[in-house]
Amino acid sequence: MKNLIVATTALVASATFAQAGGLAAPTIEAPVAAPVVIAAPAPVTTWAGAYAGAALTYGETEGSVGGTSDSIDGVGVALRGGYDWQFGSWVLGLGAEYAYNNEDGDVFGATAERKDSAAVFARAGYALDTWLPYVSAGYTWSDAEVAGTSYDLEGATYGVGVEKLFTQNISGFAEYSFADFDDVQGVSVEGQGVKLGVNYRF
Rank of each mutant, 00 (worst) to 15 (best):
A7M: 14
T9L: 15
L11N: 14
A20Q: 15
G22I: 04
G22P: 03
L23I: 15
A25H: 05
A25S: 13
P26E: 04
P26N: 05
I28S: 12
P31W: 12
V32E: 13
P35S: 11
I38F: 14
I38V: 15
A40P: 05
A40L: 13
P41H: 00
V44D: 13
T46P: 07
G49F: 04
Y51V: 02
Y51L: 01
A55V: 07
L56V: 15
T57P: 01
T61Y: 04
T61K: 03
E62V: 01
G63Y: 08
S64I: 00
S64V: 10
T68S: 15
S69Y: 00
S69K: 01
D70Q: 11
D73W: 01
G74N: 05
G74L: 09
V75I: 14
V75H: 11
V75E: 12
G76I: 04
A78D: 03
A78L: 05
L79R: 01
R80D: 07
G82C: 04
G82I: 02
Y83I: 12
Y83R: 01
G88N: 01
G88M: 02
S89T: 12
V91S: 08
L94D: 00
A96M: 14
A96V: 12
E97T: 06
Y98A: 14
Y98Q: 10
A99H: 06
Y100G: 07
Y100V: 11
N102E: 08
E103T: 10
D104A: 10
D104N: 15
D116K: 10
V120D: 09
G125D: 03
Y126R: 08
A127M: 06
T130I: 08
T130L: 03
W131K: 06
A137M: 11
A137C: 13
Y139M: 07
S142D: 12
A144T: 05
A144N: 07
A144L: 04
E145V: 10
V146Q: 06
G148C: 11
Y151G: 02
Y151I: 03
D152F: 02
D152R: 09
G155A: 04
A156D: 14
V160Q: 01
V160D: 09
G161K: 08
K164W: 15
L165M: 12
E175A: 12
F178K: 06
A179F: 07
F181W: 09
F181K: 07
V184T: 06
E190C: 00
E190M: 01
G191R: 07
G191S: 15
Q192T: 00
G193C: 00
V194C: 05
V194I: 10
K195F: 06
K195D: 09
L196A: 14
